[in-house]
């Protein structure tokens, strides 16, 4: 799941400066699940913006809506009639949502209300942790199902480094050493031998270094 967190309201209010008819758009998928941009948060943000404007002696119209997935053109297109009459759109989706809205509504400014943080899972209620960096070339088969790219602070392929102490990472004692976890996991699987294999340098051109990426499924496109 994509995990996002809300921007500070003090950062959002200036973005709305000078606009009279604002539409706050929520997304019912990932950001609802990570409690950042669902229907509940949309209502809170919309109300906050109305109050903020009134507290500054202004009057703005702030409407609210939430759609199934902001990352689908079709869903965003369904907003055509709702968007009419608004001069600013605030997306409470992830960065993908903001951009989809921008693409579908070329004549309207759209601003983000969230900071898109990571791909991860809830560790417990209210805490989310990173598990994947979308490097584009998965090696979890070699590391016992624990990702060194996202869990090792240095994204080492042949760890651990000298900074691993008592299972913790040198950058912060709160952080588990990813390679320690990998070692323990492989040990319990009886596959410590995997560690003897030296992993060659990763082809980062398949990741962010190679420019905007694209996935093409030939058999699905005509």
């Amino acid at each position: 799941m994509i995990v996002a967190e809300q921007k500070d309201i003090a950062e959002i209010i200036p973005m709305t400066e000078g606009y009279q008819n604002i539409l706050v758009i929520g997304c019912d998928t990932c950001v609802t699940v990570c409690l950042a941009g669902g229907a509940k948060e949309v209502a809170i943000l919309a109300c906050s913006l109305r109050l903020a404007a009134r507290a500054r002696g202004k009057k703005v119209q702030v409407d609210e809506i939430s759609i199934e997935r902001q990352c689908e053109k079709e869903f965003v297109d369904s907003l055509q009639s709702t968007v009419r009459g608004h001069d600013l759109l605030i997306s409470m989706g992830c960065g993908i949502g903001v951009q989809t809205i921008a693409e579908q509504f070329p004549n309207l400014p759209v601003v983000p209300a969230l900071n898109t943080k990571l791909l991860g899972l809830p560790e417990r209620q209210g805490v989310w942790v990173e598990r994947c960096q979308a490097c584009g070339q998965c090696i979890l088969d070699k590391t016992g199902g624990i990702c060194p790219i996202s869990r090792c602070s240095k994204s080492l392929l042949n760890g651990p480094c000298g900074g691993s102490q008592n299972g913790k990472c040198e950058i912060n004692k709160e952080i588990d050493c990813g390679w320690h976890l990998i070692y323990e996991r492989l040990k319990s699987l009886g596959r410590l031998g995997c560690l003897e294999e030296i992993m060659p340098a990763k082809d980062w051109s398949r990741s962010r270094d190679g420019g905007p990426r694209k996935v093409i499924r030939e058999d699905m496109c005509l």
């Binding site: 500070d8 309201i9 003090a10 209010i13 906050s48 109050l51 903020a52 507290a55 500054r56």
Partner: peptide
């Protein structure tokens, strides 16, 4: 905290 930032 939210109210404070809103101006209340």
């Amino acid at each position: 905290a939210l109210l404070e930032k809103i101006g209340i």
